[in-house]
Each structure stands twice: as structure tokens, then as C-alpha cells.
């Protein structure tokens, strides 16, 4: 038995694609007039209404004193607190009898960027930084020595202060 098929009869304006195409194009072209939300990374790294948060914890930076020496006194608290065990420190003494780090190395690959080193530092020497662009040609370049840590120029992170939770 043949199946009887009922063919719907519709008006031309309902089955024409022209109307839908024009509607779509209208939406597309309307975007030309709207403000752009795309950030042109890497040419642009921050915009009017977006920048890296203050509390961003990225690769480290060692702050220096007026003479350009690292502020670190090699107290040993950062390797002690580091949960990833990525800080190597050998203390020594300079000509004036000041304690300073003979060796200070941070393995940025091993680091988990918790920021404990900055929090524990009594001299405000080691900081995590507002920095995230890290590319190198070899893996060992990710072990930052003291010279390299001191040479970093990016802004340092502001750690969360529980007494000022909103950063005001």
C-alpha cells in the first residue's frame, strides 16, 4: 500500500533564503560598529579594562639594595618553606662580614608558584613576579641563578593580606 504524503504548501516569503541571509549579514555588519573586545596579544599585553592581577604569582625576582647587591641574607627560610623544594641556597660571608648567598638558584620548572618564599622572606628580597612569558631554547635555562633573579625587571606580586581581603 502506497504511503500517502501530504505536501505542505507555503508562501514564497516563507521558503525564500534571501530574507534569512540578509538578517545574518545585518548582524555581522552590525559588529563593525561595536567596540572591539579582542586583545592583540602579543603586541598588546594589557588594555584599558584588563591587566595582569596585582596578586599574580609568576617567575621570581630578587630585589636589590642601593648598591645593586641582592637584599638576600641567606637566612634559609625560603628553601625551608618551599613545598616544591626548588630553591638551592648556600650561605657565605663577604669581605665586610655580611652574610649573603654564595649560591642562590630557583628551578622555575619545579616551582609551583605558591608564593610562600615571598611571604616568609624577612628581608623582602625574594618575590614572585607579575610575569608569565617564559620561553627558552633549553631546559637548564629555567634554573635562575642569583644574577638572573636580580636582573629581572617585571613588577613583583602583592600577596594576599588576610586583614585586607579585597586589596583595599
Amino acid at each position: 500500500m502506497a504511503i500517502s504524503v501530504k505536501v505542505m504548501q507555503r508562501k514564497n516569503q516563507e521558503i525564500s533564503y534571501l530574507r534569512a541571509a540578509l538578517k545574518g549579514m545585518a548582524l555581522t555588519f552590525s559588529h563593525l560598529k561595536r567596540p572591539s573586545v579582542t586583545m592583540q596579544y602579543p603586541e598588546e599585553t594589557k588594555t584599558e579594562d584588563w591587566k595582569l592581577p596585582e596578586r599574580w604569582r609568576g617567575t621570581h625576582r630578587m630585589l636589590t639594595d642601593e648598591q645593586g647587591r641582592a637584599k638576600c641574607v641567606a637566612c634559609g627560610l625560603c628553601p625551608q618553606i618551599c613545598p616544591a623544594n626548588c630553591i638551592k641556597l648556600v650561605p657565605g660571608e663577604d669581605e665586610e662580614g655580611h652574610r649573603y648567598p654564595l649560591v642562590y638558584e630557583i628551578d622555575e620548572f619545579r616551582c609551583v608558584f605558591c608564593g610562600y618564599c615571598q611571604e616568609v622572606c624577612p628581608e623582602e628580597a625574594i618575590h614572585v613576579g607579575q610575569h608569565y612569558e617564559n620561553a627558552e631554547y633549553s631546559r637548564d635555562r629555567f634554573v635562575y641563578d642569583l644574577e638572573r633573579l636580580c636582573a629581572q625587571t617585571h613588577p613583583v606580586s602583592t600577596l594576599w593580606d588576610p586583614s585586607d581581603a579585597r586589596g583595599e
Binding site: 641574607v73 641567606a74 637566612c75 652574610r99 624577612p122 628581608e123
Partner: peptide, 8 residues
């Protein structure tokens, strides 16, 4: 100077 003191 506890950070640099050996007694710490």
C-alpha cells in the same frame, strides 16, 4: 637579626 644569626 634572627635571619642571619646562627643561634636562631
Amino acid at each position: 637579626d634572627c635571619p642571619i644569626c646562627d643561634q636562631s
